[in-house]
Design a protein around this nucleic acid. Structure first.
Lengths: 110, 110
DNA sequence: ATATATACCTTGCATTGCAATGTAGTGAGT
DNA sequence: ACTCACTACATTGCAATGCAAGGTATATAT
């Protein structure tokens, strides 16, 4: 039971939420996620994920020049992405409720 | 982003918490998880998971006769399993905090 | 006998996080 | 010019695990 397994299907929603707030590029996203407390976020996770989301039309991308390195690929949310984010939030809240209930009943009452 | 992906690495902890409360057998576990709000829990998930946990010495198992069908395989927590449960709870709380922070900042402030 | 509920297990697949590796632009120091 | 560090995107192959589908077997009722 590694820590990374718990992230499956969850960072997707977090990424959508961050992109909704403001368009971001991949490298920036990695830094933001780390700032939020997700430790060690691999680029091997982020770039394939963003590309998958683009393929699924949850986000759209445009390249912009940078003065600090190569061009950046900025992502922003599509309407479909907004809907998906709302669905994620619903599922996340249900999951939280279920897990917390199990932990309370299961751990304390023995 | 399916609903099942979000469960990866998370039901493990929930199962440990349920077993800690009281020894259970697989079929019973499926029903309990459903009662807690985890919809549609496949036996193809539960039995391999329990066997994996036994292999990792997080749980121990004993067979007991049943009057309502074939013998039941009851699982109970080992010391190692208790430690693993504590680790899970820590990770879960961190995850909750991070995700909720992202959702608050990302969704509302745009 | 047949049906239903109980109870466990196995096989094969799909998804996805990640380490490792590659490529390339920009700027500072020497 | 050369090197180094930082920035930035991408690909490959692997590992973990949830699950549908299918199989086996026991107990009870009709």
């Amino acid at each position: 039971m590694s820590s990374t397994q718990m992230l499956k299907g969850i960072i997707d929603g977090c990424v959508l939420a961050i992109i909704k707030n403001k368009e971001v590029y991949g490298y920036e996203l990695a830094e933001k996620l780390e700032a939020y407390g997700f430790e060690s976020f691999s680029e091997g996770t982020i770039y394939p994920m963003l590309m998958r989301m683009q393929r699924e039309e949850l986000v759209s991308a445009t390249f912009k020049k940078s003065t600090a390195g190569p061009r950046r690929k900025y992502y922003s949310l599509t309407q479909k992405g907004e809907k998906e984010l709302q669905h994620f939030i619903t599922r996340w809240e249900q999951l939280q409720q279920s897990v917390n209930q199990v932990l309370q009943n299961g751990v304390n009452s023995s």
